[in-house]
Protein backbone atom coordinates (compact mmCIF):
# COMPACT_ATOMS: atom_id res chain seq x y z
CA UNK A 1 0.00 0.00 0.00
CA UNK A 2 1.26 3.47 -0.89
CA UNK A 3 1.30 5.61 2.19
CA UNK A 4 1.65 9.39 2.23
CA UNK A 5 4.78 10.93 3.73
CA UNK A 6 4.77 14.26 5.52
CA UNK A 7 7.63 16.26 4.03
CA UNK A 8 6.31 19.78 3.68
CA UNK A 9 9.55 21.75 3.64
CA UNK A 10 7.70 25.04 4.07
CA UNK A 11 6.18 23.83 7.31
CA UNK A 12 9.29 22.33 8.90
CA UNK A 13 11.38 24.70 10.96
CA UNK A 14 15.11 24.52 10.38
CA UNK A 15 17.68 25.92 12.80
CA UNK A 16 20.25 28.49 11.59
CA UNK A 17 22.91 25.76 11.45
CA UNK A 18 20.81 23.81 8.94
CA UNK A 19 20.12 26.87 6.80
CA UNK A 20 23.84 27.57 6.66
CA UNK A 21 24.57 24.02 5.51
CA UNK A 22 21.81 23.98 2.89
CA UNK A 23 22.77 27.38 1.49
CA UNK A 24 26.40 26.19 1.43
CA UNK A 25 25.36 23.39 -0.87
CA UNK A 26 23.14 25.62 -3.01
CA UNK A 27 25.97 28.15 -3.39
CA UNK A 28 28.24 25.25 -4.38
CA UNK A 29 25.85 24.27 -7.15
CA UNK A 30 25.56 27.90 -8.23
CA UNK A 31 29.35 28.17 -8.38
CA UNK A 32 29.62 25.02 -10.47
CA UNK A 33 26.91 25.92 -12.96
CA UNK A 34 27.11 29.74 -13.10
CA UNK A 35 30.18 31.28 -11.45
CA UNK A 36 32.76 28.95 -13.01
CA UNK A 37 31.43 29.10 -16.61
CA UNK A 38 31.01 32.88 -16.44
CA UNK A 39 34.51 33.31 -15.03
CA UNK A 40 36.09 31.04 -17.62
CA UNK A 41 34.24 32.71 -20.50
CA UNK A 42 35.16 36.20 -19.23
CA UNK A 43 38.78 35.15 -18.76
CA UNK A 44 39.07 33.67 -22.23
CA UNK A 45 37.54 36.85 -23.66
CA UNK A 46 39.99 38.97 -21.67
CA UNK A 47 42.96 36.96 -22.88
CA UNK A 48 41.96 36.83 -26.53
CA UNK A 49 43.79 39.99 -27.62
CA UNK A 50 44.74 43.37 -26.25
CA UNK A 51 41.76 44.84 -28.12
CA UNK A 52 39.32 42.48 -26.40
CA UNK A 53 40.96 43.29 -23.08
CA UNK A 54 40.46 47.00 -23.66
CA UNK A 55 36.87 46.42 -24.79
CA UNK A 56 36.08 44.41 -21.67
CA UNK A 57 37.75 46.98 -19.43
CA UNK A 58 35.85 49.81 -21.05
CA UNK A 59 32.52 48.07 -20.75
CA UNK A 60 33.22 46.97 -17.20
CA UNK A 61 34.24 50.43 -16.03
CA UNK A 62 31.23 52.13 -17.57
CA UNK A 63 28.59 49.63 -16.62
CA UNK A 64 27.35 49.51 -13.04
CA UNK A 65 25.15 46.50 -13.75
CA UNK A 66 28.14 44.48 -14.99
CA UNK A 67 29.98 45.39 -11.80
CA UNK A 68 27.01 44.28 -9.72
CA UNK A 69 26.84 40.97 -11.57
CA UNK A 70 30.53 40.27 -10.94
CA UNK A 71 30.21 41.45 -7.34
CA UNK A 72 27.37 38.99 -6.69
CA UNK A 73 29.33 36.14 -8.27
CA UNK A 74 32.30 36.90 -6.01
CA UNK A 75 30.10 37.25 -2.94
CA UNK A 76 28.42 33.90 -3.57
CA UNK A 77 31.82 32.29 -4.06
CA UNK A 78 33.01 33.79 -0.78
CA UNK A 79 29.88 32.63 1.02
CA UNK A 80 30.71 29.10 -0.04
CA UNK A 81 34.27 29.47 1.26
CA UNK A 82 33.22 30.94 4.61
CA UNK A 83 30.55 28.32 5.36
CA UNK A 84 32.82 25.58 4.00
CA UNK A 85 35.67 26.50 6.31
CA UNK A 86 33.26 26.41 9.25
CA UNK A 87 32.21 22.89 8.25
CA UNK A 88 35.82 21.80 7.99
CA UNK A 89 36.64 23.23 11.41
CA UNK A 90 33.73 21.20 12.79
CA UNK A 91 34.96 18.06 11.03
CA UNK A 92 38.36 18.51 12.66
CA UNK A 93 36.63 18.95 16.05
CA UNK A 94 38.12 22.45 16.27
CA UNK A 95 34.65 23.86 16.97
CA UNK A 96 32.90 21.89 19.69
CA UNK A 97 29.83 20.10 18.41
CA UNK A 98 27.42 21.38 21.03
CA UNK A 99 24.26 23.12 19.87
CA UNK A 100 25.26 26.41 21.51
CA UNK A 101 28.73 26.63 19.97
CA UNK A 102 27.38 25.50 16.63
CA UNK A 103 24.90 28.38 16.70
CA UNK A 104 27.63 30.78 17.73
CA UNK A 105 29.98 29.64 14.98
CA UNK A 106 27.12 30.06 12.47
CA UNK A 107 26.51 33.60 13.67
CA UNK A 108 30.22 34.43 13.60
CA UNK A 109 30.50 32.98 10.09
CA UNK A 110 27.60 35.14 8.91
CA UNK A 111 29.00 38.28 10.53
CA UNK A 112 32.44 37.70 8.99
CA UNK A 113 30.82 37.00 5.64
CA UNK A 114 28.73 40.18 5.77
CA UNK A 115 31.72 42.30 6.78
CA UNK A 116 33.78 40.80 3.98
CA UNK A 117 30.96 41.33 1.48
CA UNK A 118 30.70 44.98 2.43
CA UNK A 119 34.44 45.40 2.00
CA UNK A 120 34.35 43.63 -1.35
CA UNK A 121 31.46 45.82 -2.48
CA UNK A 122 33.33 48.97 -1.49
CA UNK A 123 36.44 47.84 -3.37
CA UNK A 124 34.60 46.79 -6.52
CA UNK A 125 32.07 49.63 -6.81
Amino acid sequence: MKRPVNINLLKIKLPLTALLSITHRLSGMFIFFIVMPVSVISLSFLLESSASYELFKENYNSSISLKIIFLSLIIIFKYHIFTGVRHMLMDFHLISESLASSYRSSQITLILFLADSLLTAVVIL
Partner: peptide, 15 residues
Protein backbone atom coordinates in the same frame (compact mmCIF):
# COMPACT_ATOMS: atom_id res chain seq x y z
CA UNK B 1 26.87 16.91 7.14
CA UNK B 2 26.55 18.18 10.68
CA UNK B 3 23.58 20.47 10.20
CA UNK B 4 22.53 19.95 13.87
CA UNK B 5 18.81 19.38 13.27
CA UNK B 6 19.04 16.23 15.39
CA UNK B 7 20.60 18.03 18.35
CA UNK B 8 18.14 20.90 18.19
CA UNK B 9 15.09 18.62 18.46
CA UNK B 10 16.26 15.86 20.85
CA UNK B 11 13.78 15.81 23.77
CA UNK B 12 16.43 14.19 25.97
CA UNK B 13 19.04 16.86 25.07
CA UNK B 14 21.44 14.29 23.62
CA UNK B 15 23.99 15.07 20.91
Amino acid sequence: HGIMNCVSVCPKSLN
